[in-house]
């Protein structure tokens, strides 16, 4: 995690807030994160900003049990490589989903969340995360509620 100053967050706001990537107009390839130079065409290429589709599928995932500094509050959390509808892949957390429910191929969509905060006085860092496209995340809350109701009856 980066305990870096405000400019380091500010200059990445397009990508992290709006999922902006790059497209090379010469070869048509789309990249995330943004690149100044297309690795296929290099100086012959012409790279422009492009907004990426907000939906995709889980390409691979893991559940982080031993978090890095700054993410203790969120553990265990799901980290996934998401393949977007145009084939571009991004790394992100999967939220609103139980760790045991995530699977390769799970349809997900992008959402805007807090990523971490630098203590009481530091910067709060925001960015994209992904959540399941179906309603399993709602059901998991409902089930939790049911358990607590039945416990109350006892």
């Amino acid at each position: 995690m980066s305990m870096l100053g405000i400019p380091s967050h500010w200059r990445r706001r397009k990508e992290r807030y709006r999922l902006i990537g790059s497209k090379c107009e010469a070869c048509g390839k789309v990249f995330f994160p943004r690149r100044e130079i297309c690795p296929n065409c290099r100086r012959r290429g012409r790279v422009i900003d492009v907004e990426l589709p907000g939906r995709g599928k889980v390409y691979s995932y893991t559940v982080i049990r031993v978090p890095s500094e700054g993410f203790e509050y969120y553990a265990p959390y799901i980290i996934a490589i998401v393949e977007l509808e145009n084939g571009v892949r991004v790394m992100s957390q999967i939220v609103d989903c139980n760790p045991e429910d995530v699977y390769i191929g799970m349809p997900v969509e992008v959402c805007f969340r807090r990523i971490f905060s630098q203590g009481d006085k530091g910067i709060i860092s925001y960015g994209f995360k992904f959540k399941p496209l179906d309603d399993s995340w709602i059901r998991c809350y409902e089930e939790e509620a049911k358990i607590s109701v039945s416990e109350m009856k006892v």
Binding site: S60, V66, I79
Partner: peptide, 26 residues
């Protein structure tokens, strides 16, 4: 974590075991 992409992997909470776990899972 400095060995991974700090802006696009570590920023989102990836750890080194996490990266190899993604490889293993796939």
């Amino acid at each position: 974590a400095g060995a991974m992409d700090s802006e696009w992997e570590a920023y989102f909470g990836a750890t080194f075991p996490g990266l190899y776990a993604l490889i293993a899972q796939r």
